[in-house]
Design a protein around this nucleic acid. Sequence first.
DNA 1: ACAATATACTTATCATGATAAGCATATTAC
DNA 2: GTAATATGCTTATCATGATAAGTATATTGT
Lengths: 150, 150
Amino acid sequence: MFFLKELPTREILERYHERFPEMNVDMVGDALLLMRQASLLLRQLDEYFSGHDFSQLRFLIIVIIDREQETLLTASEILKKLDVSGPVMARTLKALEASQMIVFHEHESDKRAKRIALTPKGKAKLQAILPGYYETIERFMSTLGQHDAS
Amino acid sequence: MFFLKELPTREILERYHERFPEMNVDMVGDALLLMRQASLLLRQLDEYFSGHDFSQLRFLIIVIIDREQETLLTASEILKKLDVSGPVMARTLKALEASQMIVFHEHESDKRAKRIALTPKGKAKLQAILPGYYETIERFMSTLGQHDAS
DNA sequence: ACAATATACTTATCATGATAAGCATATTAC
DNA sequence: GTAATATGCTTATCATGATAAGTATATTGT
């Protein structure tokens, strides 16, 4: 997360540019705005999720499982689609199992692996969460100008 | 952070739109891209900072202290400029003190508060870190198109 | 076949974000 | 002046990210 509430003005960036001439004022300004806006949106979404006893990561995991129609995924297959570490994935899957959103099935050919399926409760959670997720995003995106630094 | 490596294609978003008609495909697509790009940049910066035994937050704190020329700030004044919680601010300031980047001085009128000053070591750290910070941002921003989902 | 390596997942530990509650001091209301 | 409230910071505890190292099973090379 990028925590700075008020981004530096163009004047301030230009003063930094005098001390560090290789610094590109426009690029740095754009990057700070990118990080700040995304952080504000991520905050809103985190708040939305935690109000539903959920999290960004738990949400993305069940979206990914849900999107796969044919086969059941394993933890490492989900891991390839999300950049979190293995231990975080394992812990989060365990939490999803504990809250009965997913179940683990034996893998048919690899004793180390488990196949992961969404439960009806997990599917229902996803359906219940998606509308508010979109709404949160849209509320944020339609007021984006007001979060601008300049 | 937003962890999804491959953003949904327009077709996939349109399929969601059929299930959730109030969902605006363009806005949601833009928001996911915003979060993903910012997360990638934040990752790069985190990696840069941790290679220098530092962090985003420690960096922002010393930037803010450095920017203030006239008076020494207190923890709560820095807190107004950064959206982190009070305990995190207190802990991070303590870490900055332990590594001799800042010193606490008695507040002249409020016994609860402390005035915070950058040490020469803290100033030197900031000077040492800034060029690589800009470079990391610029390297990222100039390849932004390649991080695009579409 | 079997040793070496790779893969799937777990365990242990740390870092850094949060909230709730606490203490001391300041400020405000009367 | 003193009670009530607010403010500045700390302590305790939790959540959730990371890495390093461990176990079991699979795969590869010879």
